[in-house]
């Protein structure tokens, strides 16, 4: 199996199959990030497609080819936030991403599994709340399932994510 840097180099040299493989490897993560940013399916589709269009124009000047996955999810997150700004009639990033978000590493398969396992160790309501959020339930549905006011779902989710962040950091420190 070719690594990310090899795929990027091959795509830059005109290898269509390498491009398809990049999409296969990173498309699902990009979609998940766009949706996690709060985009509708239609807008998420635009953010993902726009990110691939940007990569197409930067195939030869990604600073760290091995981190192209991080570049893609960092870019799609930026595109998502631009799309969420309804005051912008023309959505455009004037410059390509140069620094990959270090936090995007949590999207790697091993880290995702660790994250999911850690959620199951949280106390209630955090455990159920984060599992329901992961199932794409809106705040009202989450509130209804957990018997809490809809207005408190957002702040509670933020606190639960903070706890999760702390636990993950402790686990990383212990390793």
């Amino acid at each position: 199996m070719r690594d990310s840097a090899e795929l990027l180099t091959a795509a830059a040299d005109g290898d269509r199959s390498a491009w398809d493989e990049l999409e296969s490897r990173f498309g699902p993560r990009m979609w998940a990030v766009a949706r996690a940013c709060g985009l509708s399916p239609a807008d998420a589709a635009d953010a993902v497609q726009g990110t691939w269009l940007r990569l197409l124009q930067h195939l030869r000047n990604i600073r760290d080819p091995g981190a192209v996955g991080g570049w893609l999810v960092t870019t799609v997150r930026r595109e998502a936030f631009l799309l969420l700004r309804k005051d912008l009639p023309v959505v455009s990033s004037s410059e390509a991403v140069t620094e990959v978000d270090p936090a995007a590493v949590v999207l790697e398969a091993d880290d995702r599994q660790l994250l999911w396992k850690t959620v199951s160790t949280l106390n209630e309501p955090c455990r159920s709340l984060l599992q329901l959020v992961a199932l794409d339930l809106g705040n009202r549905q989450v509130a209804s399932r957990l018997g809490m006011p809809a207005g408190s779902v957002g702040p509670t989710k933020a606190r639960c994510l903070e706890k999760l962040r702390t636990l993950i950091s402790l686990q990383e420190t212990a390793q």
Binding site: G27, P28, R29, M30, W31, A32, V33, R35, A36, C37, V48, V73, R77, A80, D101, A103, A104, V106, L107, D111, R112, Q113, L115, W116, V119, L130, Q131, V133, A134, L135, D136, A158, L161, L164, R165, I168
Partner: peptide, 19 residues
Amino acid sequence: INDEYFLAALRLEAGTDPI
């Protein structure tokens, strides 16, 4: 760690909203 990446990772593991 940005919350969006956290939530995206959880969504990927839940598998209910595939691309």
